[in-house]
Amino acid sequence: MAKRFSLATAFIIISLVGLTPAGAQTLVDGAFSLISTDDNVLKVVNLDDGTFKVEFVGPGEAKLVASADADLSDAVRQIYQEFEFLVYDQAAEADHIDLIILDTVPRAAADDAGGAENVATGGEAAADAAAETDGAADAEQSA
């Protein structure tokens, strides 16, 4: 799955880690290499401290290709990993969903109002308040 970023983001700083087949972190022999498949979308700057600055240059799709020598002896066994990025130029475009908590109700208040469902929907008291009645009109109409 591609990582999505708006051009409102100037850059990110990343580091790379070697992983075993089971997913545990492990050492690699020497430094990691990281390149972009399209410098018009992603520009990589090696910060020489084990981290990389990835600049978002323009909209489009590009991959970051990481490589390292996995063999800790004098032999060489190159490993590679690609990371897909989608960079878009509409800063106002949604790229994820969040939730907004509008209210919290203590359990005691929910129990006093006839249960959580009654509180969550506002209950009859809230409906009566919205209609500016005391509930008596409802009782008369249903009789």
Rank of each mutant, 00 (worst) to 15 (best):
Y88F: 12
G115C: 05
V87F: 05
F83C: 08
L7P: 07
G18I: 07
E82T: 14
D95F: 07
D112P: 00
D112V: 02
D39P: 04
L16D: 10
I13A: 03
I13F: 09
V65Q: 14
D49A: 14
L27K: 15
L47M: 14
N40K: 10
T9A: 11
D103K: 06
P21D: 03
L72H: 11
V44P: 04
I35H: 05
L64I: 10
Q90F: 01
I13T: 15
D95A: 03
V57C: 11
G50Y: 02
G115L: 01
E55P: 00
D111K: 05
F11T: 06
F83M: 11
V17E: 13
R77Q: 15
G23Y: 09
T104C: 09
F56N: 05
F11P: 01
L102H: 08
L47C: 12
F85C: 06
S67M: 02
L19V: 14
N40A: 15
E61L: 05
I12L: 02
T20E: 08
A75F: 11
S73Q: 11
T51C: 12
D89S: 12
Q90L: 03
Q90M: 02
V17I: 12
A109I: 07
L42D: 09
S33F: 06
G30Q: 13
V54F: 10
G115V: 06
L27N: 14
A110S: 11
A68S: 04
L19N: 03
Q90W: 01
V44R: 01
F83R: 09
Q81L: 03
G115Y: 02
T37E: 09
L27S: 15
A113I: 02
A8M: 08
I14P: 06
T9K: 11
S15H: 05
G115F: 01
G114I: 00
L7G: 07
V45H: 11
I97R: 13
L102P: 00
T26D: 05
D103L: 02
L86M: 06
D98N: 06
N46C: 06
D111P: 00
A31F: 01
L34F: 08
D71Y: 10
V87H: 06
S73T: 15
F32V: 03
D95S: 09
E55C: 04
Q25A: 15
K63A: 06
A110P: 00
L34T: 10
Q81K: 15
T51P: 05
E84K: 12
L19H: 02
G115W: 00
L19D: 00
V65C: 10
A24H: 07
D71Q: 07
E82K: 11
S15N: 12
S67A: 13
V57T: 14
T37D: 13
F52E: 02
I79L: 03
A24M: 04
G114P: 08
A62S: 13
I100F: 08
V45P: 00
F32I: 05
A68K: 01
Y80Q: 10
D48N: 15
Q81D: 10
A110L: 00
Q90T: 10
Y88S: 04
A92P: 00
A22D: 15
I35W: 02
F56I: 04
L99S: 13
